[in-house]
Amino acid sequence: MQDKRTFLRIQILRFIAAAVVVAYHAQITTISYFGGDDPYRVLELGVYGVDLFFVISGFIIVFIGSSRETTASVFVKRRVERIVPMYWIMTAATFALTHIPGLARNEVSGPGHLLQSLLFMSWVNGPETYPVLNVGWTLEYEVLFYAVAAASMALTKRAWATAAFVMLALVLSGRGTSFFLQNPIMIEFVFGMTIGTFLYDRRLFPWMLLGCVLVLLTLPMSGAAWRVWAFGVPSAALVSLAIYADFRKPYAGFVLPELGNASYSIYLVHVIAISCVCKVASVVMPNLSTAIGVPVISLFAIAVGYLCYRLIERNLLRVLGRRRRKAALVTNPPVHAE
C-alpha cells in the first residue's frame, strides 16, 4: 500500500478542479452584475472541473477503502465527517443570506427545499433542480456513490466490483438520459475506481476497464454521454498520469498540495464569496471591467475558501476525529497485560 503522501499530485489536481470551477462561476456572475461579453472564453470549460472531481473521488475511495477505511462502518463515519458538517454550514449560510432583504437576486428557498438540500435529496424535484447551495448537486452524486460503496463493503467480499456494477447498471438502464440516478456522469466515478484497482486489485482491473468501455460504447450519444467522452475520459487520463508521475518522482512542493487540501472548502465557499464581492463591487465600482474583475474575484474567492479551510474545516475534522477515537476506546477498550 502506498503512503498518502505519494499522491500529492492528486491533491494538486483537486485544487485545479476547484479553481477552474471558481473561475467559471466568477466570470458568469461578474457578467451578470457588470454586463459585457465573456472576457475569457476558455473559462466556459471550467464547469467541467466537476468531471475531474468525480474521477478523483472514485480513485480516492478505492485507495482509502483498501488501506485505511477497510470496514463499512469506519468508511461511513469518516465520509460523513468529511463532507456533511461543512456542507451543512455553507448551505445554512446560503439559506440565511438569501433571506436578507435586497441581497438575493433569485427566488429564495423555502424550508422544504432547505431540508431536501441538507439530506442531499434535491434531485427528487426533477431535472435542473439545484440545492440551496447550487454546487451541492455534485455532493448529491458523491453521497450516492458513497452509499453504493458502503453497502458494497458491508454486503459483499468484492466491494469495488459490486459498486462498479451497480453504478454502470444504473447508467446503462438510462440509455443516455440526464436523470440523476441514470446520468452517464456516474461512469466517471467508476473510471477513478478502475484506476484504483490497477494499484490495489490488479486481477479486478481488466474487468472494471472492460465494463467501462462496454457501457460507454453501448450508450447513445446524448449530451450527457458526450460530456463523459469529452471530459470524463481525459480526466481519467490526467489522474492516471498524475499517479504515474508521483511514483516516478515524489512531488517536493508545499503550496499547491496545501491548496488541494483546501479544495473542498474552496468549492463550497466560492459561490457565496463571489456573490457577496460582486454585490459590494456593483455599488462601489459600478463600472468595473469584467476582464479585471474575473481574475481578481476568482483569487478572492479562493483566498476566502482557504481561510475557511484553515479556520473551520480543519478544526471541525480535528474535533470530530477526537470524538470518534474516544468513542472507539469506550466501545473497544485497550487490553492491558497483567
Score class of each variant (00 low, 15 high):
128 E>G: 13
54 F>E: 00
43 L>R: 06
163 A>L: 03
315 N>A: 10
285 M>Q: 10
153 M>I: 06
337 A>R: 13
7 F>A: 08
308 C>R: 02
335 V>H: 03
35 G>E: 04
320 L>W: 08
297 I>L: 04
226 W>H: 06
129 T>S: 12
124 V>P: 04
171 V>N: 14
91 T>W: 10
271 V>F: 15
189 F>M: 05
259 L>D: 04
45 L>N: 14
85 P>L: 13
271 V>Q: 15
68 R>S: 15
169 A>Q: 09
301 A>L: 05
62 V>I: 09
257 P>K: 09
187 I>V: 03
233 V>R: 14
181 L>R: 01
138 T>N: 10
251 Y>M: 12
133 L>Q: 08
74 V>H: 09
333 P>E: 02
275 S>K: 12
40 Y>H: 06
93 A>V: 14
190 V>H: 06
6 T>I: 07
218 T>V: 11
180 F>A: 00
241 L>Y: 12
139 L>Y: 10
48 Y>I: 06
331 T>W: 02
171 V>S: 14
12 I>D: 04
87 Y>D: 03
15 F>S: 03
144 L>T: 03
322 R>F: 12
215 V>W: 00
8 L>I: 07
64 I>W: 11
266 I>T: 04
7 F>D: 02
87 Y>E: 03
326 K>T: 12
82 R>G: 01
195 I>T: 00
272 I>D: 11
322 R>T: 14
64 I>T: 12
72 A>S: 11
84 V>M: 11
177 T>I: 05
133 L>C: 08
221 M>N: 08
178 S>H: 05
91 T>D: 04
6 T>F: 04
195 I>H: 00
270 H>V: 12
68 R>C: 05
48 Y>E: 09
89 I>P: 05
